[in-house]
C-alpha cells in the first residue's frame, strides 16, 4: 500500500507543479492573500470579481468560503477573515461581538438582489398578491390554520396551498420574514424548506397549488416552467425586474447585498486593490451572475466612502 500513497503524493505534486507554470504572464504588482467568507447568496458576485482580479493580479491568493452571512460574521468578528460577504446588514449582536474583539470595519453595498414570489404556470387565479395577503399566508399564526387557497381570498380555489421557501438559516429567509411578517426569522414552520433554491424550483414546477419565494436569478433561469407573481405593496402590482428593483418600485422584496471589510486589512495594499477593483467592476459582473447592479451614483458614493475609510485607517501608519 505504501507505494500507492507515494504514487498519489507524486501525482499531486506533479499537478501542483503544472499549475505553477500557468501564472507567468501579466504579473501585477500586488501579492499576498485575502480571506473572504460569508453568504452563499453573495458568493457568485465575489467569485466573479475574484476571478477577474486574478487575471490581473495572479500573485494575490483569494479564498472564498460559504459559511452563510451569520457564520461569516462570526469568523469576521474573530479577525479570521479580511472581508465578509453578507446578504443583510450586520446585526446588533454581531456589531457587539466585533466591538468586544476590537474589530472595526466598513460595510459596502455592492448590488441588489430581488426576491421573486412564484407559482406554478397552471395557476390561473394568482397574478398579483398584496403584502398583507403574503403576511396572512406566512406569519407564525397561520400555521395549521391557513391551509387552503380560499382561506386567503374566498374567490381562490378550495384546494390545499403548498408553501416553499428557503431554509431558516439563509439570509433570504431572514429578509423575507422581516419584509413581510415584520420580524426577521419569524414565520410559520409548516412549509417545505430547502437551502438549495433549485429544490424549491422543482417543487413549484410540479405542483399546481404551490406558492414560494426565492432569489430572482432562480426564476430567470427557470422562467418557462414558473409563473412570476406581481407584488402589491399599496401602490399597485409590480413585477420584479432589473428596472423595478433599481427604481425602488418593487418593494419590499428587494434588498442590497454587502461586503464588510476589516479595518486592519485595509493597511494591506492587496486588500485595498481588491476592494477598489470590486467596486469598479461589480456593475458589469453582478449582472452576469443574475444580480442587479446599483445606480452609478450609488457606486460613486460607496467608492468615496471606502476611499475615506482607507485614508483614515490605511497604510500610512502601518508601513513596513
Amino acid at each position: 500500500m505504501k507505494i500507492k500513497y507515494l504514487l498519489i503524493l507524486a501525482v499531486a505534486t506533479m499537478l501542483m507543479a503544472s499549475c505553477n507554470s500557468k501564472s507567468d504572464h501579466k504579473t501585477g504588482d500586488l501579492s499576498g492573500s485575502i480571506a473572504i467568507d460569508g453568504s452563499s447568496t453573495v458568493y457568485p458576485v465575489t467569485e466573479a470579481v475574484a476571478e477577474e482580479f486574478r487575471a490581473e493580479f495572479p500573485d494575490v491568493k483569494i479564498t472564498i468560503g460559504i459559511s452563510g452571512t451569520g457564520g461569516g460574521f462570526k469568523k469576521f468578528a474573530r479577525g479570521e477573515t479580511d472581508i465578509s460577504n453578507a446578504s443583510r446588514p450586520i446585526r446588533e449582536e454581531e456589531i457587539q461581538l466585533c466591538k468586544d474583539n476590537g474589530i472595526s470595519y466598513i460595510g459596502l453595498e455592492v448590488a441588489y438582489d430581488g426576491m421573486a414570489v412564484v407559482v406554478n404556470p397552471r395557476n390561473t387565479w394568482l397574478t398579483e398578491i398584496t403584502v398583507a395577503d403574503l403576511k396572512k399566508i406566512w406569519e407564525p399564526s397561520a400555521q395549521d390554520k391557513i391551509k387552503r387557497w380560499n382561506q386567503i381570498r374566498p374567490e381562490w380555489p378550495d384546494e390545499e396551498i403548498h408553501l416553499f421557501g428557503p431554509g431558516t438559516a439563509s439570509g433570504t429567509y431572514d429578509y423575507f420574514t422581516e419584509a413581510i411578517v415584520g420580524k426577521s426569522g419569524s414565520s410559520r414552520g409548516d412549509f417545505t424548506a430547502s437551502e438549495d433554491d433549485n429544490v424549491l424550483v422543482q417543487g413549484i414546477k410540479n405542483d399546481k397549488y404551490a406558492l414560494g419565494f426565492f432569489g430572482l436569478a432562480y426564476y430567470e433561469e427557470n422562467h418557462e416552467s414558473l409563473k412570476l407573481v406581481a407584488v402589491n405593496s399599496g401602490s399597485g402590482p409590480v413585477l420584479p425586474s432589473k428596472e423595478t428593483v433599481l427604481s425602488g418600485e418593487y418593494k419590499p422584496l428587494s434588498r442590497s447585498i454587502y461586503i464588510y471589510v476589516n479595518e486592519k486589512a485595509v493597511s494591506r495594499p492587496e486588500v485595498v486593490g481588491f476592494v477598489d477593483f470590486y467596486l469598479s467592476n461589480v456593475k458589469a459582473l453582478a449582472g452576469e451572475v443574475g444580480y442587479i447592479p446599483l445606480q452609478d451614483s450609488t457606486y460613486e458614493s460607496v467608492k468615496q466612502r471606502f476611499a475615506d475609510f482607507v485614508k483614515l485607517h490605511g497604510a500610512q501608519d502601518g508601513q513596513k
Binding site: 465575489t46 475574484a50 486574478r54 479564498t63 468560503g65
Partner: peptide, 15 residues
C-alpha cells in the same frame, strides 16, 4: 469540512 474551514473558491492548489 465546511465547519472547520474548507472553502468554496480556492484558485490555487495547497502546497
Amino acid at each position: 469540512l465546511i465547519v472547520v474551514g474548507a472553502l468554496a473558491y480556492v484558485p490555487f492548489v495547497p502546497a
